[in-house]
Amino acid sequence: MSIVRVAGWIRVDSKTNDVEPPYDREITLIINNIDRLQTLEFLGPNEISLLHRTRELMQTDIMPIALSGRGYDQALRYAVEAEQNLARISKFIDVHRREVKGKEEFRRTFTRSLWVFVLTLVVLIFGVIIVTQNAEFGKRRNEYVRSVALLHAHMTRSRVAALRLFLDYVNDQRSPAPEILRAALEAVKELEAINSGLVRIVNSERDAHTEALGELLQGIRVPLDIKIGLEIERNVKYLQVPAIQVHLVVEELVNNAVAAVVGTQTKQITIRARLLNRYFSFANKLLIQVADTGGGMTSGILDKAATPFFSTRAGSHVGLGLTSCIEMVKAMQGKVKIDSTPGVGTVVSVLLPLNNQR
């Protein structure tokens, strides 16, 4: 607006020869504004050159003429050039302002679209995780039901056969021998124990009860003539674990170890528990080991121990059995490893996932 006023005054003074307007103040204001415009970083070389030229016109050419009152026609030509230069600068600034506004609007639109995309992706990922977890849960559940069904069939087969033999004697109207009667009564007791144990196993899938691992392992009992040692690392002593499942597995492994050391000179059983830190994995593993100083197993027996429901103590034993422990651990997404050396002893290692639980 200042350059317009100065140009207007010059036009009037070129006709009237009056020297009244405050040229010095207005021209100084124009020069100061040009100096400020030159600090704008987005101006190109052409625009900077136009500003330099306009400043030179105002300070060197127009100011002396306007103050002297002579040569208004020449000053008017300089003022018109300055007006044109500043008009071009103003047009360039206006175009830049519209570009910046457009970029800002694009940035806001892109940011909104990006957030919508991210939220959609997060929802999709969670959906996939939920579907995958449901499928994995269904698979685990089926394996669990299968293992329990096979366990029930394995553990009841011989007892049902004993009861059938006893009933055959009764149907033949013959008095059963005392040993057959005792076998039948024993079979009934064992079936009751088996059913009670299986009920505990089935309910354990829904039972959310947990217990500190240290207290659970300290509750394992062995005969008085057998030494049992606990080697539990501090970082797992208070770790909360599924009470029923872990207790059933460890108890059965200890019972197997007790049977292995009976009749040996050194009757020693050791239970170890420690945490395996996986630096390149999100989930840590809990390692529980039951070691004994028994006679150990040959490679042939060791191979059979990994087959479904193999037992070296068939008949009187009504616990889970070693291979049933393996099935139980598999249902908990864990692994079992057996290391045995004849004449030295056996170590059974149970590796369980913690699912980030501390």
Rank of each mutant, 00 (worst) to 15 (best):
A193D: 11
D168E: 07
R164F: 09
H154K: 02
K227A: 02
I130Q: 00
I228L: 09
L124K: 00
L151E: 01
S175T: 11
P223A: 01
E211W: 08
R174Y: 12
V236R: 13
E233R: 13
T210L: 10
V222Y: 00
R174N: 12
Q218K: 07
V236Y: 05
A149Y: 05
S204M: 13
D172N: 15
Q133P: 00
F137R: 04
G138T: 01
I228D: 05
D168Q: 11
I228P: 03
V118H: 06
K227C: 06
E233S: 14
E192P: 09
I125L: 08
R159C: 00
V145D: 02
L165T: 07
V116A: 10
H152P: 03
P242F: 11
H154M: 08
R141P: 03
F166G: 06
N142T: 01
V222S: 09
V170I: 13
F117D: 11
H154N: 12
L181T: 09
R157D: 08
K139P: 08
G229I: 00
E231D: 07
E192M: 11
R141T: 05
A183M: 09
F126E: 00
Y169S: 14
S158C: 00
L181K: 08
I194Y: 03
I220Q: 08
R206E: 14
L239E: 13
K189Q: 13
D207G: 04
E231Q: 08
I228T: 03
L181P: 00
A243V: 06
S204W: 07
L121W: 10
L213N: 07
S204D: 07
E233A: 15
E205S: 02
H209G: 04
A212C: 12
I226F: 00
T120S: 14
A177C: 04
L151K: 04
S158W: 04
I130Y: 03
